[in-house]
Computed example of a mutant assay.
Amino acid sequence: MRAWTICDPKAGTLTQSLGIARQFDPEPHRVLVKKRLPKWAKGPLSPYWRRIGKPEPELLVSCGSFATRHVAAIAAACRKRPFTVHLQPVDDGLNDAFDLVFAGRHDLRSIEAPPANTREMLGAPHQITAELLSAFRSAARARWVPSGGQVVTVLIGGPTKAYRYDDATLTRLAATIETFAKEGRTVLASPSRRTPPALVDWLLGARSKQIVVWDRTGDNPYLDFVAAADAFLVTKDSVTMPCEVLTSGRPTFIVELEKTPGDKLDEFEWFHRDLSETLGLTRPFEGRIYDYDYAPPDETRRIGDVILAEMAQRR
């Protein structure tokens, strides 16, 4: 099946779109958009009018608020309308342009009557699968932890509208990583583009045989770090990172951050309570790592199955 993804260039939206589209097409065509399409850009005024190459897409998967008008314009430019899927609530009046809309449980909590085409999803879909992690695990451990032993992978985000990385937070994170190393664990630390420079500098300065840090140059070893882990420490500012690592079935602990009151904080706090208290998937980090069991979610594949069933029903 020919699938296209339509989203902005942000890594979070791109990995969601690709994760779903690759359930149908191993190499989906990517349309990256940097702004909304003007309302008047329709019909012959559309940048896609008579510019859709052959073969035309059969499935459009989009994510992010910039994408919705582009999807409507692309679908209108096709001779046969493709099946359209959006991976966030649609808030610009274009909900009817989509056959299916998938919204996170944390988003739907505040929507009293979701539209009929809306389906629930857990967090955010992505491109990591249990099979992929299993295939990479041996080589990843041989490369990053040749001496063996327990590995804790620490995934660090950065400040958002919901959370701050104050001095106390930075100190706690640094002390935790040092403690893990002193206990004989290997720490694989992956900072993101949003990670505060002071914390990145500390991580780079703390590198040793027990503390391995990606310096944000060269290829990102994120997949290796996730595959090699026996447990995870994930900062609270991300939806995607916990969803990705939970695919492994390994213990996942969420690091508390300094809160910034507001709607965004309420959304994230609900999301993490849902993961931990309702679904039993994660645990709040309270100073120690321990084993616990849960059924690893496979949300990307589940969403793909829902799309496939809906497409078959409409044929």
Rank of each mutant, 00 (worst) to 15 (best):
Y294I: 15
A75P: 07
V245L: 06
S62F: 01
S190I: 15
W4P: 12
A67Q: 03
E244L: 10
L32P: 10
P221G: 06
V200M: 11
D96Y: 01
A103Q: 09
A21F: 00
M311K: 14
W202S: 11
I307P: 04
C7P: 05
A124C: 11
V234L: 09
V154G: 09
I111W: 01
F102M: 03
L18V: 14
D305A: 15
D166C: 12
K54P: 06
A162C: 11
A11T: 08
E277P: 01
G64W: 01
T160D: 04
T186I: 05
A189Y: 00
K209E: 15
F285K: 07
G304E: 08
P125V: 15
D291L: 14
W144A: 10
D8Y: 00
H272R: 06
A124Q: 10
R119Q: 13
M121C: 12
A140E: 02
P296H: 12
L45C: 04
G218S: 09
P146D: 06
E310H: 13
D237Q: 08
V31F: 02
A140C: 10
P251Y: 07
R36Q: 07
G184K: 08
P251I: 11
W40S: 15
A77E: 02
P28A: 06
E244N: 04
V71G: 07
W270P: 01
I303Y: 05
D201K: 12
T217L: 11
S192E: 04
G149T: 06
P38D: 06
F232Q: 05
R207F: 01
A97P: 02
